[in-house]
Design a protein around this nucleic acid. Sequence first.
DNA 1: AATGAATGAGATTTCATTCAT
DNA 2: TATGAATGAAATCTCATTCAT
Lengths: 196, 196, 196, 196
Amino acid sequence: MVYTRHVKAQRSNSRNEALLEAAAHRFAVQGFRATSMRDIARAVGMLPGSIYYHFPSKDDLLLAIYQAGVEQITAEFEAAVEPLDDPWDQLEAGMAALVLAVTEESAYTRVIFKVMPDEVPKHRKKLVAFRDLFEANIRDLVERLPLQPWVDKHLLRLMILGAGNHAQLWFSAEGDYSADEIGRAFSRYLKDSVSK
Amino acid sequence: MVYTRHVKAQRSNSRNEALLEAAAHRFAVQGFRATSMRDIARAVGMLPGSIYYHFPSKDDLLLAIYQAGVEQITAEFEAAVEPLDDPWDQLEAGMAALVLAVTEESAYTRVIFKVMPDEVPKHRKKLVAFRDLFEANIRDLVERLPLQPWVDKHLLRLMILGAGNHAQLWFSAEGDYSADEIGRAFSRYLKDSVSK
Amino acid sequence: MVYTRHVKAQRSNSRNEALLEAAAHRFAVQGFRATSMRDIARAVGMLPGSIYYHFPSKDDLLLAIYQAGVEQITAEFEAAVEPLDDPWDQLEAGMAALVLAVTEESAYTRVIFKVMPDEVPKHRKKLVAFRDLFEANIRDLVERLPLQPWVDKHLLRLMILGAGNHAQLWFSAEGDYSADEIGRAFSRYLKDSVSK
Amino acid sequence: MVYTRHVKAQRSNSRNEALLEAAAHRFAVQGFRATSMRDIARAVGMLPGSIYYHFPSKDDLLLAIYQAGVEQITAEFEAAVEPLDDPWDQLEAGMAALVLAVTEESAYTRVIFKVMPDEVPKHRKKLVAFRDLFEANIRDLVERLPLQPWVDKHLLRLMILGAGNHAQLWFSAEGDYSADEIGRAFSRYLKDSVSK
DNA sequence: AATGAATGAGATTTCATTCAT
DNA sequence: TATGAATGAAATCTCATTCAT
């Protein structure tokens, strides 16, 4: 599936995906600034200058990746959450989807959690908007939970987000737990404390 | 208080601290790579080359900041936790200290959570060692908690760390909650679920 | 003739040769350290940064020049020596070729005698290997001479090499003698003393 | 023995010698440009700025070393040559002294053969003059030799000089021959060919 | 659609030198 | 005599980007 339908910058479609995939991978692993256009070009077997036929700038590459990432994560989130009825089941599934997103092989989603909008002043606002789009998924999730009156939904959402994002730093495919298990464990560590 | 006593690279003490402070501030705000030696020099009223009288390289500057940060955060942690007897009180105080550390004005501690060891290959191992030193504080905290048998202490520690670190991204001094309140809220969101 | 066929660093061929030629000239005249990339760039009408498209570093530029120089000098040596049968005629021709090499217009060979391997730690071993390759030419020459038993071939070779190399320091195109004459004179100053 | 009597630049005498000795050693080993004032300062246990109390510049340091070197080598030359009557014995002793000078522990003399006047434009003329002073020793030596009419004394002197200087590049204290033996061998390799 | 070549701005770093103390 | 601190110029190198082909 291609998640780049609305990116205006690109011109063709054949190599774009490979380019995005490669760039996303490097950005997710090395970070945005530490990745050079040369790195990306080498990864797809092009020369650096050739990238500019497909994307007008490095910043725009990132923007396209962000967009693709948000579309993907939202789709995954909905697929995991919507079939369920119980809000706590939804939380469990949602956190599992979140941990999966920050750790999964496909790099689009990981970039969103690795590269901060401040690193790309030119697109800062748009990147923040994309992040908000994604975070709305979690906001909705928390909104539906029946919580103790002393629980601040805003803080709870940020705690969930933080715990999930952080997994990108320590998750290992060979570790004791799968991304799914980690997400579900996290939700269980919260549930009884905050549920009404 | 000066937290740089053991850094070998520095030679004197007068401008070193100003240099560390300025560098830490830029690193915490902009990130390591996005901060140039010129930025740091300007912040302390020096020329770029003059920095090298005090620190042999940009990488070593970061190392000194990391060290100072770990010393500071450990001191703060101990000051907050040790006076208390009840493990759950300790958790509450510890999480408050953590959130304080990632958000406080002094930038030494924030740098530890903002700049990842991978960004500085030359010192990666040492930086990781410093981080481990700090994380041991939280490990000890969790170790002392009387937990339900189904709770994995390893995962719980990582959840706490993630939730706390993340605050650096959204905390605002003018927000509804103080760092202290945020840390205590987070600990309450966990306590009843996982305690025996 | 191009003497750079096997240098991996270079990518194309059009400006590379001009670059090598210019760099070799400066290195031969000013020495390696005293020659800046800016000097070289100016000599070929580029900006300093542009050189790095063709060669990854100043050290690698020198390496390529060394290689070209050794290939050239070996070719010249063989062309001068091989047609001859008598070992003493070969010595005469060889010494002439040596003096020519250290004084000739083309700078590739002069660089080998001007820039010592120690000046470029990164490539020291390779540079020494190239020098050895060249010196083998003279070793072979001496090996074939019928010498008095009290003559040490090793010392004789070093004496020849030293006398020849040194010409780079004082040779003048407008002087009384051509490079060829100098080489032949030197061989004559030795012959009767050491020949059997 | 101090060989710096006439250097005007210096102000005192106590640390000057240590400074010259250290600088000469680094210059002889690493070359002039590759040796930093910091290197020299470290070698004598000073800070870089302190050197300027004793010598007004790096260039002047070299000048003083050159002068000391020429005085020393001339003294050694005379001590070796003057007692002898036969010109060929003198040549043998002179070449031995030359090889000794370019290889001996004391670095003053080695610097003269390692650092070329062109490397220090500010003092080029003076450095050349010092070299000439030294080379006059060899000129005199050759002048007294009874030579075949076809031998060019100028060329012969340059050949001797080249063969001798070159030893600095390959001489090893643990090698098969002493400096003395090398010099004498070289003179023997020439004598019978050129003597009348 | 891509390449080869270059640009130009800026990065980190080095280093001879200065100067108040 | 020497130091601590800094300067300022220049060095090597990186890199996003451009552009003719």
